[in-house]
């Protein structure tokens, strides 16, 4: 079973060794975004998935991935939000194909989400259902980083202050079309670079420096028994 370590003051040693001492500028990130049929993780299905790799504050556009998922689930309000219609979905790939590819990034990259909990809960559920084993996954949440930065400056975040669009505006990043999985993934990665640069302009701090922000979480994998201290 996976479990989220609810402890915000994550012990340093739970960060896998290969990331533990790397300055964040050297860490390979993977920003992921899912478009879902519902905001309730329990009943939600993946409609599409997009991701992009980033390292040293750079994104190679060639590393962009986008896949519409063939799902039989009801689309509910999703066509309105994501523009995905039944005919797109019908042409999609089974979710397994995309997640097989995603799995390869589990150990090598730190996964980045704008709102980790929702997307990771759904991913967690689907991986489990497909019986696909996973390594430990280290995640960063740009939404939590944003809230942390807002609290530090204004104390009380305004409503909507932490949406991807408003976060990007605060960092003077260009407007991006929201609600396509790939566009949101790229937008999230750019936002992460902006946030981390603001927190540590030299880019020398390791991940553990972010433990106090609530943005860093480690999801324990299902491959091997949990190791406390490698």
């Amino acid at each position: 079973m996976w479990q989220t370590l609810k402890n915000w003051f994550l012990p340093k040693f739970t960060i896998p060794a290969h990331f533990r001492h790397l300055p964040w500028q050297q860490i390979p990130f993977l920003a992921i975004d899912l478009e879902l049929t519902s905001l309730d993780a329990k009943e939600s299905n993946i409609l599409s998935i997009g991701w992009v790799e980033g390292k040293q504050s750079s994104i190679a556009l060639a590393s962009c991935y986008y896949q519409v998922i063939a799902t039989k689930a009801s689309l509910n309000q999703s066509p309105v939000i994501h523009g995905l219609l039944d005919e797109h979905i019908a042409q999609g790939e089974p979710v397994k194909v995309a997640l097989e590819k995603l799995r390869h990034y589990a150990e090598s990259h730190v996964w980045v989400f704008h709102n980790t909990n929702l997307d990771m809960s759904v991913l967690n559920k689907v991986f489990l259902k497909l019986g696909m084993p996973l390594e430990d996954i280290v995640t960063l949440d740009t939404l939590q980083l944003a809230l942390y930065q807002i609290r530090k400056s204004e104390s009380v975040p305004a409503p909507n202050a932490a949406t991807l669009t408003s976060c990007r505006q605060r960092h003077n990043l260009p407007l991006a079309p929201a609600h396509n999985a790939l566009d949101d993934a790229v937008a999230t990665m750019e936002l992460l670079f902006a946030q981390l640069s603001q927190l540590d302009s030299k880019g020398r701090e390791p991940l553990s420096a972010l433990t106090g922000t609530g943005a860093l979480k480690v999801f324990k994998g299902t491959v091997r028994p949990q190791r406390i201290n490698p």
């Binding site: 040293q56 504050s57 750079s58 990043l173 750019e190």
Partner: peptide, 28 residues
């Protein structure tokens, strides 16, 4: 073939040094 870099005072020199003879286009 394009890479998109987030340029700050601290990393700008390094990012340009890593990209010998690129065409640079400012997005923001």
């Amino acid at each position: 073939h394009i890479t998109v870099a987030y340029l700050t005072s601290e990393n700008a020199a390094q990012i340009l040094a890593d990209r010998d003879n690129n065409l640079f286009l400012i997005s923001s």
